[in-house]
């Protein structure tokens, strides 16, 4: 069982959370070209290694936050609030 530290509630089991996709994807202007829109919607880093991603403490306080997690070891390397740059 993976355990994740919510910025508000501390260390809780993975089943209290929901994964919300890769973090730091900036939505392009709506009049962008198809390539920029494709990159935004579909192209992902999907690394075997450290991944910056969004999570929500859905069965807890409800907060959205970012974390950096290793996709092979599942080690959570950093937890940080939304809106700040990747540490």
């Amino acid at each position: 069982m993976m355990r994740i530290a919510c910025p508000n509630c501390g260390l809780r089991d993975e089943r209290e959370y929901a994964y919300g996709g890769e973090a730091h994807l900036d939505r392009p202007e709506l009049d962008c070209d198809d390539q920029a829109w494709e990159e935004y919607l579909f192209l992902r880093a999907n690394p075997k290694g450290e991944h910056a991603e969004r999570w929500v403490h859905v069965h807890g306080c409800g907060v959205w936050f970012n974390l950096i997690r290793h996709t092979e070891t599942h080690e959570v390397v950093a937890v940080y609030v939304m809106g700040v740059a990747r540490p």
Binding site: M1, M2, E14, A18, Y19, N46, K48, H51, E53, R69, T71, E72, T73, H74
Partner: peptide
């Protein structure tokens, strides 16, 4: 329910 390259499962 989250990306993984660990061949073991949640």
């Amino acid at each position: 329910p989250y990306p993984s390259f660990a061949q073991r499962g949640s």
